[in-house]
Write a protein that binds this DNA or RNA. Sequence first.
DNA 1: CGAACACTTGATAAAAGTCAAACGACGTGG
DNA 2: CCACGTCGTTTGACTTTTATCAAGTGTTCG
Lengths: 245, 245
Amino acid sequence: MVATSCFADRLSKHLPLSDAEKTALSRLEENPRKVKRGAMIQRVNEPVTELFVLREGRVMSFVILPDGSRQILRVYFPGDFIGSASTIYNKAPESLVAISDSVICPFDKHALRRLLEEYPRVAALLFLLSNNERVAMTDRLASLGRTSAKARVASFMLDMLDRLRLTDDDITDSFDLKLTQEEIGDAIGLTSVHVNRMIRQMEQEGLISRSNGRIRLLDMARLEEIGHYTNRHKHMDLDWLPAMS
Amino acid sequence: MVATSCFADRLSKHLPLSDAEKTALSRLEENPRKVKRGAMIQRVNEPVTELFVLREGRVMSFVILPDGSRQILRVYFPGDFIGSASTIYNKAPESLVAISDSVICPFDKHALRRLLEEYPRVAALLFLLSNNERVAMTDRLASLGRTSAKARVASFMLDMLDRLRLTDDDITDSFDLKLTQEEIGDAIGLTSVHVNRMIRQMEQEGLISRSNGRIRLLDMARLEEIGHYTNRHKHMDLDWLPAMS
DNA sequence: CGAACACTTGATAAAAGTCAAACGACGTGG
DNA sequence: CCACGTCGTTTGACTTTTATCAAGTGTTCG
């Protein structure tokens, strides 16, 4: 029996891992820490040497612009690897805050270095997942740059659903948003007022329904069309990675 | 004497490389290919197994949305590593087109796999540079999501200048744009008409000057302020990477 | 020389932002 | 246990920003 690890579980959805690899990954999660909703995990421009695996809850990364407006860069879910920016920068380029009560597992960046040295296959896998994040980011870029407010809301919701489904097989067409409309707006470049109008409109059109914070996507096909959405988690192909040793 | 390689040169600006590593990297560039301005290098949704190192010229990646509008995802410069998306997807998530006459060095993704297996330090370095790209992308995200048209133009130009300076030490405050105003607009989520108005305004205010396609940044401090720009290439710290073996 | 292409400019329209106010839920302290 | 304050949502009136449409001006290249 090998130690359990949220992160190893996640990675092995893509690629079978050896016991040694699983054990090595589980060592990253040796120091779980609870954080309350709203707690600041990392502050922009402050020195950082730690990375995190998110075990439970929800965390966001964001920056605040000089005029006070906020851009949420990414919302993280359980099993996600957070703070890879600290591998290149001594000072955090972005802040991290818990959106809901969460459990994070901090580890030193030197632990990551040792892992990459000793397990090249894990290194390659992390490289690939980092590329996957890059593609997710380009999708958001196209969304912000070239699509309407309604399209952005639609694709944002589809993306959340698909990412939650990665780790939770029970989820089919509904999920807890756990984000205020202002937070949604800050993620997709809109004001909370306008997000509200769009959500409301989509509800009236029968695209979604809501009941205390829980969102149900009623017509996914049409939502995908409206949001120009493509699921980037399906169709991944990691076959070319080194075979298990 | 070790074979020269555009890519190795670029990487060694961050980290001294061993001769073996340089040789291995240079093998990625064994098949240089010339492409003309406008040539399609990769078409979205078509099967891909190749990656590229860009040796000369300029290449862009982009997607076309169903309504016909285009979002340019990234502009690549000499020394850049292109198409890492093909490491995870069999079908290209984005198109690649040469913006100016260029020289690209295609190599098979299996060659990359072997490299990652044999040179863990190079693998770690690629992982880091991929994180660097991710941060660059988040900056653009904040730019598109939360800043004005003028700010976007300003930060776009500063970013181009800083990236060109990475490989060309001669550049100080001016560079050849080699992009139409429509292309700039497609990169930062504006129409060509509005890009024109902003550039024109910035010229009148003495922030920039132009002479046949060449842009000179006259007041960088103020441009940085207007664009909320931070240079992400300075201040990188790769000290924690495995020592040279 | 002419066609294609990029740039420029003006008039008008649409999308999203701002401001303001009211409502409801929720939690906390008196 | 209720009153009150805080926070998030909802709605309306109005403003600003940016897009759209259209036409004219170079410039380059075959």
